[in-house]
Write a protein that binds this DNA or RNA. Structure first.
Length: 894
RNA sequence: GGGAGGUUAGCUCAGCGGUAGAGCGCCUGCUUUACACGCAGGUGGUCGGGGGUUCGAUCCCCUCACCUCCCACCA
């Protein structure tokens, strides 16, 4: 065991390895050029045909379940989807290979507004408006469109390689999912958590519907603050109000002041005259509405077009006048302005006020305005009858679930954002004045009785009237999305799938829909199933290209399908995985795609090198009792390290680190060093070659397995050649890595070995010698790490080969030789001509070393350091100092 | 008005108590029979500024500057 180690039971804890090739005679050759388009589709179809995407094994055994964040039916795959789904697929494949029954449920979202807009746009090309068709026909048109070109995105996910269980594909408007939506509504209604009422909501005049608070995006704009004088009989100076929206004054029904504001005390109890309309409106005192610090201390009250004013009006029993209609045009209540667009009306109102000398002051004013998330129209606060979810009772348990750890966020920092929002949550407006979506299951009879039920009522249950009419509105799309993790399994029915696969394990999505979707799913899951719908939420960042948001105008959009064509699905996936960071933005660049493609090609070519050797031999993996060479031991140790790192990082959702670890192992260690060392061994074809072939098989096999979640197609293709078992890598065991199988001695030895080889190589260039010029090397057995020298002696043939030595000797440095110390090993090289001490590079290195030596020795003379720093750290510093001094001495030798 | 995150090599980003890493780029050499989508060697950083804690800080604390994002009913 001193020099050579016998392979022990290192694999005791490892999963069983693949059986021998089914047919050793099967061709093991790969095409010379790597072209992923030759096999991507083939493997995808094979996996699907073999049922690999469906959970195998008996119900109840350990499983791993995810539901896809359902993309819009209208959607095309963009880089953001590709990123999120790649992450999910990596998880799915990793867990599947780790022996769990994996289910990943696909599907699409009906996406109310978005889809309706797509079809409306299509109709407008034919010169038709949806109103011309009527509701039923329009909806039929949407379904027709969906049959033709909806769901295209699902096919695109196949190109990506997503191992989704297509037999369970769901759509939020499927009959059973619609039933779930209706049932959820009915239950919340019956529990008093859904109510209907007239309130000021966010209204998009262009979309013609109410939207929720979340669907309004606020932007700062440069506007004006207008001060307008309202006459107040008995108060000469009148009431000067400040407003950014003068057109709304037409709907004013009061003027408010603060009860304790001396500036406005003269107005108390008075009546003002609304300019233009010449309507008398009361002055009310409202300490909630009026901020004494702001403006003139007088606030105009427009209950129908401002939520605060509405609240105030409620408190004072004021009427509300709707002066801006649902189309954004002034209503009949606006008198002479009726029919004008709201912004045109603003201009006219201002002109009139100016004329009347009532526009006291206009100042530039920067303030936030709400815009429709969908169409960017300025949102109009609008008083209308809507349905709402009373959210606080739902939020409470959802907050608790995260506090208790029933649901955990990865990265954890998102929990804070979640709490922040959940603790200040407002009721949710869920009715939408659209046609495409889940119709609200509320029916009103001619006597005004409202019925909410799972089945359409034939007659009013209250009065027997035979004519209950269903509410024309549909539900916010997110109302159905929030049920997704259980509605896909057949909820509310107690289906076997629901029992077997709910709650799910991990939810992966962008942080941008934390409130829209994630929070609501937690609330709905707890309310309807009594369980949190998933135990972990992985919120990932949003993809940026070169640090900038993707936009078509900037031309920096990466189309994932084009990228797949150009680089291959594997390369794109690997790029996305390595770009994954814990931060809020994920930067993807074309250069990284190229680099991943190169990596894929590297794997291909390494396999082309390795496979023929395995073909010629019957060797499988290294056997117990095989005499492993030091390089064999080293690469197997590194393999364990890479595998355990990959698992560790996957566990922590650090896909970038996992990908890096595998990249580094495969390229830098396996290809650049082990393969180069093993080539001559294989050529000699002695007994060590037999062992090396086993090691190679193990390395390639495990590398393919480790990389499979990241690069499924390429690895499966090579796997077939390696094992003769086509299409089985996807269900082969994932190597977990075994830290206790690490071989420190081999790692230390190879570390020194590699450093010495590199030193000889760069010395050659430093001295202007031909790259292939053979050089004599002497290693000094009295080096500080002298134990390494005999070990290196065992590596003599490799050293000679890789460093291109003319000779290798052991002993003191020959007279006049160039000397250096590398990793504690004193080396000497006799150079053909030795330009004495004139080498600039050596001078530079010497200067660096001296600097470090000074710093180190100062540190080691510091009593506080010696006393307080941990012993291993001090010891390391001592060793480093010693080696640096030796190195300096060696280099300084003329 | 509140939060959150960021500022590290020319670019895009990792690292986060023991004097810095990757990929790409750049420079120098190589037809080394797996790979030029390659090999070998190299260049490149007062880790945003200033304080503090510590034997020791890129990493912890404070502060300033600048970016990004989220939330928010001050007319």
């Amino acid at each position: 065991m001193s020099d050579k180690r016998v392979l022990d039971a290192a694999r005791d804890t490892a999963p069983p390895t693949t059986p021998p090739p089914a047919s050793p005679a099967a061709s093991m050759s790969l095409e010379k050029t790597f072209d992923p388009s030759h096999f991507e589709q083939r493997w995808y179809e094979r996996w699907e045909a073999d049922g690999r995407f469906q959970p195998g094994g008996p119900a109840g055994s350990p499983r791993f379940v995810m539901v896809i964040p359902p993309p819009n039916v209208t959607g095309r795959l963009h880089i953001g989807h590709a990123y999120g789904r790649t992450i999910e697929d990596i998880l799915a494949r990793w867990k599947r290979m780790s022996g769990l029954r994996v289910l990943w449920v696909p599907g699409t979202d009906h996406a109310g507004i978005a889809t309706q807009m797509v079809v409306e746009r299509q109709l407008s090309k034919e010169g038709v408006r949806r109103q011309d068709l009527g509701r039923d026909e329009f909806i039929e048109r949407v379904w027709a469109w969906r049959r033709e070109s909806g769901d295209a995105i699902l096919g695109q996910l196949r190109r990506l390689g997503c191992s989704l269980d297509w037999t369970r594909t769901r759509f939020t408007m499927d009959p059973d999912l619609s039933r779930a939506v209706r049932h959820a509504f009915v239950r919340l209604y019956e529990d008093g958590l859904i109510y209907r009422g007239r309130y000021v909501v966010n209204w998009c005049p262009r979309c013609g519907t109410a939207v929720s608070d979340l669907e309004v995006v606020h932007r700062e704009v440069d506007g004006s603050l207008y001060r307008v004088k309202y006459d107040v009989p008995g108060v000469p100076e009148g009431a000067v109000v400040a407003t950014t929206r003068p057109e709304t004054m037409l709907g004013d029904t009061a003027v408010a002041i603060h009860p304790d504001d001396p500036r406005t005390s003269a107005l108390r109890g008075k009546t003002a005259v609304l300019p233009i309309m010449n309507r008398e409106i009361p002055v009310v005192e409202d300490p909630i509405l009026v901020d004494r610090e702001f403006g003139t201390g007088v606030v105009k009250v427009t209950p129908a077009h401002d939520a605060n004013d509405f609240d105030s009006a409620q408190r004072h029993g004021l009427p509300a006048l709707v002066v801006i209609g649902p189309d954004g045009k002034m209503t009949a209540e606006a008198g002479e302005y009726a029919g004008l667009d709201r912004f045109e009306a603003r201009k006219r109102v201002l002109a009139r006020l100016e004329e009347q000398g009532r526009l006291v002051k206009v100042e530039p004013y920067r303030h936030a305005l709400g815009y429709c998330q969908r169409c960017d129209t300025v949102i109009e606060p609008y008083l209308s009858q809507q349905w709402f979810v009373k959210i606080a009772p739902l939020a409470e348990p959802a907050i608790a679930a995260v506090e208790k750890g029933d649901v955990r966020f990865a990265p954890e920092s998102w929990a804070k954002t979640y709490f922040e929002w959940m603790r200040n949550i407002h009721d949710w407006c869920i009715s939408r004045q659209l046609w495409w979506g889940h119709r609200i299951p509320a029916f009103t009879c001619s006597n005004g009785h409202v019925t909410v039920s799972d089945e359409d009522p034939a007659a009013c249950p209250t009065c027997g009237a035979a004519d209950p009419v269903q509410d024309p509105d549909v539900l916010d799309t997110w109302f159905s999305s929030q049920l997704w993790p259980f509605s896909v399994f057949g909820w509310p029915d107690p289906t076997p799938d629901l029992k077997d696969f709910y709650p799910t394990d991990v939810l992966v999505t962008g942080y941008d829909i934390l409130f829209f979707w994630v929070a609501r799913m937690i609330m709905a899951g707890l309310r309807f199933t009594g369980k949190a719908p998933f135990s972990t939420v992985h919120l990932h960042g949003l993809v940026r290209i070169g640090g900038e948001k993707m936009s078509k105008t900037k031309g920096n959009v990466i189309d994932p399908l084009e990228a797949i064509e150009e680089f291959g699905a594997d390369a794109m996936r690997f790029t996305l995985a390595s770009a994954a960071s814990s931060g809020p933005t994920v930067s993807v660049e074309r250069g990284r795609m190229t680099s991943s493609k190169h990596f894929a090609t590297k794997i291909w070519n390494a396999a082309r090198l390795i496979l023929p050797h395995l073909e010629a031999s019957a060797e499988r993996e290294p056997h117990r009792g095989d005499e492993l060479s030091l390089p064999d031991r080293w690469i197997l140790s590194r393999l364990e390290a890479a595998a355990s790192e990959a698992n560790r990082h996957l566990e922590g959702f650090r896909f970038d680190e996992a990908a890096n670890a595998l990249y580094h192992f495969f390229w830098d260690e396996l290809c650049d060093w082990y393969l180069e060392m093993v080539k001559p061994v294989l050529a000699e074809n002695g007994p060590p070659a037999r062992v090396a072939r086993g090691v190679l098989r193990r390395c390639l096999q495990d590398s393919l397995a480790l990389l499979h979640p990241f690069m499924p197609f390429l690895t499966e293709e090579v796997w077939e050649k390696l094992t003769g078992r086509p299409g089985t890598l996807i269900v082969s065991p994932y190597p977990r890595g075994n830290e206790s199988a690490r071989d420190d001695a081999a790692e230390e030895a190879l570390g020194a070995f590699r450093a010495i080889v590199s030193r000889v190589r760069n010395l050659r260039i430093e001295r202007g010698l031909a790259p292939a010029a053979p050089l004599p090397l002497t290693l000094d057995p009295s080096s500080s790490r002298r134990a390494l020298v005999p070990v290196l002696e065992g590596l003599a043939p490799h050293l000679t080969h890789l460093a291109r030595l003319s000779s290798l000797r052991f002993g003191p440095a020959p007279e006049g030789a160039f000397r250096d110390v590398v990793e504690g090993v004193a080396i000497a090289v006799e150079l053909p001509e030795r330009p004495a001490g004139s080498d600039a590079r050596v001078e530079k290195v010497l200067a660096e070393i001296s600097g470090e030596i000074d710093a180190l020795s100062a540190k080691l003379q510091n009593p506080a350091y010696l006393e307080k720093a941990p012993a291993p750290v001090v010891e390391k510093a001592r060793l480093r100092l010693r080696e640096l001094e030796q190195k300096r001495a060696a280099l300084a030798t003329p």
